[in-house]
Design a protein around this nucleic acid. Sequence first.
DNA 1: CTGAAAGCGCTTACAG
DNA 2: CTGAAAGCGCTTACAG
Lengths: 339, 339
Amino acid sequence: MENKKNPTLYDVAQKANVSITTVSNVLNNKNEASQKTIDRVNEAIRQLGYSRNESARTLKVGTSKLVGLIVPDNNPFFTQILTGIHEECQNHDWQVVVATSEESEKRQNEVIEMLSARQVSGIILASVTSKLYVPEKLQKVPIVLIDREVENANLPVVKANNVEGSYKATETLIQNGHRRIGIILASPGISTTLQRKEGYIQALKRYGIEVDEKLMFYGGDYTGTKTQINGGYQAVMKMIQLPEPPTAIFATNHLLMIGAVKALKEANLKIPDEISFIGFDDHPWQEITDPPFSIISQPAVEMGRQAIQALQKFKEKNIVTTTVLQLELITRNSYRSIT
Amino acid sequence: MENKKNPTLYDVAQKANVSITTVSNVLNNKNEASQKTIDRVNEAIRQLGYSRNESARTLKVGTSKLVGLIVPDNNPFFTQILTGIHEECQNHDWQVVVATSEESEKRQNEVIEMLSARQVSGIILASVTSKLYVPEKLQKVPIVLIDREVENANLPVVKANNVEGSYKATETLIQNGHRRIGIILASPGISTTLQRKEGYIQALKRYGIEVDEKLMFYGGDYTGTKTQINGGYQAVMKMIQLPEPPTAIFATNHLLMIGAVKALKEANLKIPDEISFIGFDDHPWQEITDPPFSIISQPAVEMGRQAIQALQKFKEKNIVTTTVLQLELITRNSYRSIT
DNA sequence: CTGAAAGCGCTTACAG
DNA sequence: CTGAAAGCGCTTACAG
């Protein structure tokens, strides 16, 4: 690679015949220079093709224009969150460094530390743990929790109303006459799982239906695409061999849903004629399947946007906000009434 | 937020009773200290919870442990690339800042400049333009092209063999007796589109089939998920109204494919009985559709990995590599023989 | 409205 | 094997 040195503030100052203080001032729109000076400086910047060394700025002011996003993996849901974060970050001239924790607490802590060592403006975290142990020395970097809550931290949260979303799905199935409803849940260690389970149970109780543990399945640990798809698959395979199998199934995330449908196909159980089905997370392909799937849809992009806004409030005014976004049931054609 | 100051090299040096030079040396594994000193320093680091200020390091050495990834949008293909990049970056202790160009050349240049101002180790770029204009001042930051080539730059490239992949799909349809094969292409401005078109034409010529411009469609500009899905949709709608409609369709990316299938469903044309179909990019859901889709599969994760390796070779040895990965036809059940 | 100077926290010749 | 010192490129009181 070439190695011509970048022009610095000094070069600009020299060219514009001012001090570096002045150059810095116009660079930061401090409005402390005459228009004539400003013009002269800008012209020098243009001519030299100067751009500010961000590391030097960060070192001096103690915070970079970087925000960290830590997600368990790169699944489509988190990718949509990233899109929302990107949108919102443009307003702040922030850039985002994305890291995966791979569902490992150790890795998550490492990554938090690395980001902190970069003086990021903040971290948006979808935590792998339901308790967050943030070492004291990292308390300085503002963290906003996204999607998943943690118990022991007084941090801003942006999350979906999982209880209600799950309630809605379950209730809809009940209102269609289903009384044995199987639910496939993700890893029991995270808040979203607990809440989706809660909504399911609330709906059953509300309609006087006995909660049957045998109808509740966990799709195994949350570790990668294939594992989860397989988790959904196995859950259905077990479910349909029950003495009293369910007439409807609710899969509480996108990958579990794919696995579940796969199993139903193999078992040759037709949706919705022989079994009703509701999935999770909307994706374009769900419109083109046979049948098109009904799902609980999450406003993932909006969650990303809100997270950055929450971060900003946290940083600037030290306000800890909790943002709860609504989940929507999109009805297509994967469940039917059996009354 | 709290504001307790972070411990610095000085604090560590003081605690360990050595100079900061020595601390820096053990931090960088320079192996210039006695074991006793090393232990003492490490103990001090542990006790203080010290972690190095990366901005200061970057300012001094001129390059950060950051690599930039610039993609047109956050679609699943690029997300898989990100996964590969993440995997490989862990070996180098690099982190990755992800930025989207939103298919805008202006934005792409801005982003390159911002990353450069951060002293990134390198940039992995899926360029929006087929010609890359990189201002002179940015020549210092090593760029590796991914997926999409550009004409006028002598940069490392990691790409798929699009010509061959497209040839394979087309040939397979021909061998199944199809002679009127519709192709749906993405934006004409990018190399992948040109190459996929080229493979299609080569296959037709090889089998003595006339190339009919009326069977070649562009899914509109490459601008966002909905636009592209709609592009695929429109293409099929026009195609099937042709006096001599195709008996097979090849959609050359994932979103175009979804739109195309949507249109075929609406038109009530059954795949594969009434029309044969091959799509692009493998995703788990494609196994659970009716029928399961045959597609050309891209090794996206591997592309990400290779890009980082290419970057490394470029930086360390100044070697400009071109890595071409093979595309695979995965046959499920979406085309049939009409001979 | 403008400038001289200190200092952010590191790394790296250089000297011993 | 270890340390004193310069300097990376900025920002920011402070003085005028």
